[in-house]
């Protein structure tokens, strides 16, 4: 390591095991500060310890606390610019996709952040997240087709306009306390079974 050892703060206020990076980063020669586990504790820790890099779960509710410090306090680390055209853009995007966000002291060279993010990436695989996302999109498309079918059934049977068919579906959904897609599915299922 260089003589100016980077000081790293890990924020461990979510289920994601951010704290597990501690040992690996310490082995790389970084100075690891005591972890902060609550947003209330963050302002004092940042002011006292002056970290160069803060690593936090992308989904942490404490992130807005850090945003406020970045705006109000010149010495506080800033959120990383994920879309600047530097060589490590891909690495930073991957870290964010994996669920890790970094706040970095102004003027810190991207290449000094890279090994820290590499450790973070090694800890957090993100394939599972992508799989879930795909399944959700497919589900949305299937729902949409069902709603279109239910609407056409109503239009044909009830001799109603498209607008009225929608209004009927909405009313039934609200009356039954279920989503529009669910009402549509029931209607289509009933039609299919009576065929």
């Amino acid at each position: 390591m260089t003589s100016t050892m980077l000081r790293i703060l890990l924020v461990t206020d979510t289920d994601k095991p951010i704290g597990e990076m501690r040992e690996a980063l310490a082995r790389l020669g970084y100075e690891m500060l005591a972890e902060a586990a609550t947003p209330q504790a963050l302002p004092k820790v940042v002011e006292r310890e002056r970290p160069d890099v803060i690593i936090i779960d992308t989904e942490s509710p404490s992130r807005d606390t850090l945003e406020h410090l970045a705006v109000m306090n010149e010495a506080a680390p800033r959120p990383v610019l994920m879309f600047s055209h530097d060589a490590n853009q891909q690495l930073i995007r991957e870290a964010v996709d994996a669920g890790v966000t970094a706040y970095v002291a102004e003027g810190l060279a991207p290449e000094r952040l890279a090994p820290i993010l590499e450790v973070a990436l090694a800890r957090f695989a993100h394939e599972e997240k992508l799989r879930q996302r795909l399944a959700k999109v497919e589900g949305e498309l299937a729902e949409r087709k069902t709603i279109d079918r239910a609407k056409r059934l109503l239009m044909e049977r009830g001799q109603m306009s498209e607008h009225d068919a929608y209004a009927t579906l909405r009313k039934r959904a609200m009356d039954a306390g279920v989503r529009l897609a669910e009402i549509a599915r029931r209607l289509v299922d009933a039609a299919d079974s009576s065929r």
């Binding site: 992308t58 992130r63 994920m82 959700k136 949409r144 909405r170 609200m174 989503r179």
Partner: peptide
């Protein structure tokens, strides 16, 4: 989303709850 107001205009909406405003921005 619940009433699929987008369908009439050709849109399928997917809602995604965010844990912070910083996450919304990013």
């Amino acid at each position: 989303k619940v009433l699929e107001f987008g369908h009439r205009h050709g849109l399928t909406l997917e809602l995604s709850r965010q844990p912070s405003w910083a996450a919304v921005r990013d």
